[in-house]
Design a protein around this nucleic acid. Structure first.
Lengths: 347, 347
DNA sequence: GCCGCGACTGATAGCGCTAACTTTCAATAT
DNA sequence: ATATTGAAAGTTAGCGCTATCAGTCGCGGC
């Protein structure tokens, strides 16, 4: 292993000067700098990040806490974070978060100290957990929040605009001629559910159409099973909707399955839209029209914010999260409303 | 921040003695040890892992490379690894692996050196990538392989017994009275596909039943879409199978959807079995009977092997991977064969 | 011609921890 | 009682890097 001393010796300068070159510090004459650079290249020198961390009291890694990945949400954020880390030249340290079980704080403390973490990304649900945020402040770890339920003036936050996205979904369906649209709402405990439902209504209001009746709004819980039941209720209405907007992809997939079980063809007899662009959306048949959450953008902005922290201490901390730009992904599950013959029904 | 010196001073001993207590080294008298322990507790002392890493030339973190998570495979391994890390008191550093693009080796090198990684888990497809393994040896990083296609005598490997698992699936179906079973094979490039199909045949041989004809074996590619097409071909046979064993859960889910579209009820008219216990398996309706891959066990054994490396240098390196114990998860998609009326068909 | 100034560089001392070596000292052997 | 142990503790010297402070050197102003 070549050290800074080897480089110094070869370049005929002191180690400190090499260090200066490494960090673009102070004033180093062009000639010396070139000589040092050459020596580094000759010796194939790689600065030892661990030694640096010791001095600097903190590695260049960002920490992130991951919970149960089955929802797919964490997985996608995780991937986006990895991409963002590549972009910003960092590395990612991951620890398991198992909720506020006894001793959770000691584990986090150990995680932060062992990994030399000075920056952390907090995802749901940790980003809304007060004691966690307090611990971060105590450990003097810079934090950003991703999709918090309630923003915190102490930390910058990044989220997407659920309301606007839902509105776009409905406008897309309007443009295909649908006006009788059912909505399968998400779990009542999640703000996202409310925002998406509000967006749904808002689109109607903006288009000057009458607000859909309560029979067209069915409560789900983000799961496939509740989606199945909700779809059943919508499709058994005397006047069933020609399109269904589910608050996530699992429920949308369930809707497709239930509809197909009843002999309806998608999108000819029924259009279906999901939300999230979860893996299932691209994989089932017909593939789902859905909203792609802008994970990549949120992750990149989050890391950039952390990087710029020292420069403008406290900038970006605000009550309103930065809203990243989502996109509507139109796939096979939506099509023009079939005028004329009403959808075949089959009990 | 309290250091080892603070503890030493408080306990009235030298720093080295504190270090000895910390690492259970050498001989320290019980009285001194207790005194040091007390001092550590009093001062709420946490050893600085970064400083340790500097001396020890390597942190306590394990590295893992993650690719595209959409298949769900990486996600589940990742979660299992986190659990195993908690168990073995380690931390996980993750980097993105984007295949052999130019400069991949420099990135890996930087990852290993920046994070002070001396241990690494190689997942598919990296675990079969020769240059990657060569780089690991060059960097003197201890590696274990998870589910390699071809084992490598240089590194311990952990996998599951695909053949035996497939056989169990078929035996489960036998026990429900099914004898005419269709198989949707996986992507021909994956060994797992071959192993699972071999297990399928083996069960017939072991039961003394005639080997199923070629019309009952349909090639898929592990995707939902190919599963749909394969299921269609099986269900349109003149004498359709009463059960279908798909080589993964996506294709099994597709089979369910296709069957339901044709008016077949699951499991009354058709039993379906998947493989992997992917998230989709528990989420769709009916939930899938499937094989649970023993990720947790593989991950734990992998980390334990890394931990025991120094003790018995080279132990565990063998040509045959350690086979972790899978399990058959019986859910709602399998049931006894309906004797009497043949399944209703609907074109 | 000497002083002082600024640009550049080097010696030194750690960051917190541990390995190798040395010292201390009580218990035993002679 | 003295030599001989060896367990128990301390001393010293770094791991690789960087901050502090103290130089060195050339150059213009008085």
């Amino acid at each position: 292993m070549t050290t800074i001393n080897d480089v110094a010796e070869r370049a005929g300068v002191s180690p400190k000067t090499v260090s200066r070159v490494l960090n673009d510090h102070d004033s180093v004459s062009a000639r010396t700098r070139d000589r040092v650079r050459a020596a580094m290249k000759d010796l194939d020198y790689q600065p030892n990040a661990v030694a640096r961390s010791l001095r600097a009291r903190g590695s260049g890694s960002v920490g992130v806490l991951m919970g149960d990945p089955s929802g797919g949400y964490h997985t996608r954020v995780h991937h986006a974070l990895l991409l963002a880390c590549v972009e910003t030249g960092r590395h990612l340290s991951v620890d398991l978060s198992e909720g506020p079980i006894p001793g959770w704080d000691d584990r986090i403390r150990a995680f932060v100290e062992d990994s030399g973490i000075r920056e952390m990304i907090l995802l749901p649900p940790e980003c809304d957990f007060g004691p966690m945020k307090a611990l971060m402040r105590e450990l003097d770890v810079r934090c950003v929040l991703i999709s918090p339920t309630t923003p915190d003036p102490q930390f910058p936050a990044f989220a997407m605009d659920d309301r606007a996205a839902a509105r776009e979904v409905v406008e897309h369906l309007f443009s295909l001629g649908h006006t009788r649209i059912g909505h399968i709402a998400g779990h009542p405990d999640h703000v996202a559910s409310t925002l998406r439902r509000n967006g749904f209504f808002e689109a109607y209001a903006a288009a000057g159409l009458p607000r859909p009746g309560p029979e067209l709004i069915v409560q789900g819980e983000f799961t496939f099973k509740t989606g199945l039941e909700a779809a059943r209720r919508l499709l058994e209405l005397d006047e069933p909707p020609t399109a269904i907007f589910a608050a996530n992809d699992d429920m949308a997939a369930a809707t497709c399955m239930e509809a197909q079980r009843r002999g309806l063809r998608i999108p000819d007899d029924l259009s279906v839209v999901g939300f999230d662009d979860a893996p299932i959306a691209g994989v089932i048949w017909p593939s789902l029209t859905t909203i792609r959450q802008p994970f990549e953008q949120m992750a990149l902005r989050a890391l950039q914010t952390l990087g710029a922290w020292s420069v403008n201490e406290g900038a970006g901390k605000t009550n309103t999260p930065f809203l990243a730009r989502h996109s509507l992904v139109v796939r096979e599950s939506t099509g023009p409303v079939r005028s004329g013959a009403p959808p075949r029904r089959k009990t």
